[in-house]
Amino acid sequence: MSWSREEQARRAGAELKDGDIVNLGIGLPTEVANYVPRGIQVMFHSENGLLGMGPFPYEDELDPQIINAGKQTVTLAPGASLFDSALSFAMIRGGHVDVAILGGLEVAQNGDLANWMIPGKMVTGMGGAMDLAGGAKKTLVMQTHTSKTGESKLMDRLSLPPTALGCVNRVITELGVFDCCGDHFLCLELAPGVSREEAVARTKGELRFAG
């Protein structure tokens, strides 16, 4: 047993605090918008120039000129503001965004993140990932714990080119929640049915357990 993608997104949503300014990366992190805990108000920042991103539009309110960073059509939430790309990244680099939730290819126990290229295989460019990972007050990564071939993606040190160094605070995988503590990962929570032995076996870095 492990968490489904939805359960991972719900668990990431539980990390959000009332009043947070939150930037969600492309892919699974985008889903977290659907799992903001009840009673909590956050504002979503989209780096293409929107603070106060609302949900996907109803068919009759679809506007091609309101998109998120994943180029999906979205809406404006009450209190939204719009701005150019330089101001948007001033918000990010300047430490005015509370939480960035990003996808990952690898995370190292010292908080290094790789998510923008695999030499010889995949080049998408970094987009806003380097600014976001290093600039947000808190960086959460959502990714699978191991690759399709079973290789761990929670590493003692990165094997892929880094996006930013020492930036990741917490990783949420299908197996659980893990903090980057420098010389080890600290497991805060395991998904139901996941044993400590399994988590250790699937983690290349050193894994310790809280409590």
């Binding site: 539009p57 180029k71 059509t73």
Partner: peptide, 8 residues
């Protein structure tokens, strides 16, 4: 539109 995402 690149990714037409709507809700019902």
């Amino acid at each position: 539109i690149e990714h037409r995402t709507v809700r019902t």
